[in-house]
C-alpha cells in the first residue's frame, strides 16, 4: 500500500488548498505527464515551456510537496520523476469512486422516477 507523508501534505503549514492548487495548474499537470515518461532534470523540463527555469522549478516543488513527483540527485543535477505509486493508488481509488458514483446515480434515478410517479 502507498505510504504517504501525512504531515507534509496536511499539516496546518501546508493547507489542503495548496494541494488543489498543485493539481489545478495545466503546467504542473504537463510536468507530471512528462515525468511519467522518464526522468528529467528541471532544465530539461523547463525547455518545454515558455517560462523561466525558476518558474518551472517552483512548479516542480509544488508537485513534490504533494508527493506526485520525487527528485533524485544525478551528478550535479536533480532529476524529477513521477511518483508512480501515488498515481497507481489514485487509479485504483478512482475506479472505486466510479462504482460509488454509478450506484449513487442509480439511486438518483430511482428517486427521480418516484417523484415523477407522485406527480402523475
Amino acid at each position: 500500500m502507498l505510504t504517504y507523508n501525512y504531515m507534509v501534505v496536511d499539516s496546518p503549514t501546508a493547507p489542503v488548498d495548496r494541494l488543489f492548487h498543485a493539481l489545478a495548474d495545466a503546467t504542473r499537470r504537463d510536468i507530471l505527464r512528462r515525468s511519467l515518461r522518464g526522468e528529467f532534470s528541471v532544465s530539461a523540463l523547463a525547455s518545454n515551456f515558455d517560462m523561466s527555469f525558476a518558474a518551472v522549478q517552483k512548479h516542480v516543488a509544488v508537485l513534490e510537496k504533494a508527493e506526485l513527483v520525487t527528485k533524485r540527485a544525478h551528478g550535479r543535477e536533480q532529476r524529477v520523476r513521477a511518483n508512480v505509486a501515488t498515481l497507481h493508488a489514485a487509479t485504483e481509488l478512482l475506479q472505486e469512486f466510479e462504482v460509488l458514483w454509478r450506484e449513487r446515480l442509480d439511486r438518483f434515478d430511482e428517486v427521480l422516477n418516484e417523484e415523477k410517479g407522485k406527480k402523475l
Binding site: V16, A24, E67, T86, A90, F97
Partner: peptide, 21 residues
C-alpha cells in the same frame, strides 16, 4: 470530483462507502 490527495480518497472510501457498495 477533484481530490486533494490519494490519502483523501482512501479516507472517503473508508467512510462506510466500501461496505455500502
Amino acid at each position: 470530483t477533484i481530490f486533494p490527495s490519494v490519502l483523501a480518497m482512501e479516507k472517503f472510501l473508508g467512510m462506510g462507502m466500501a461496505e455500502g457498495m
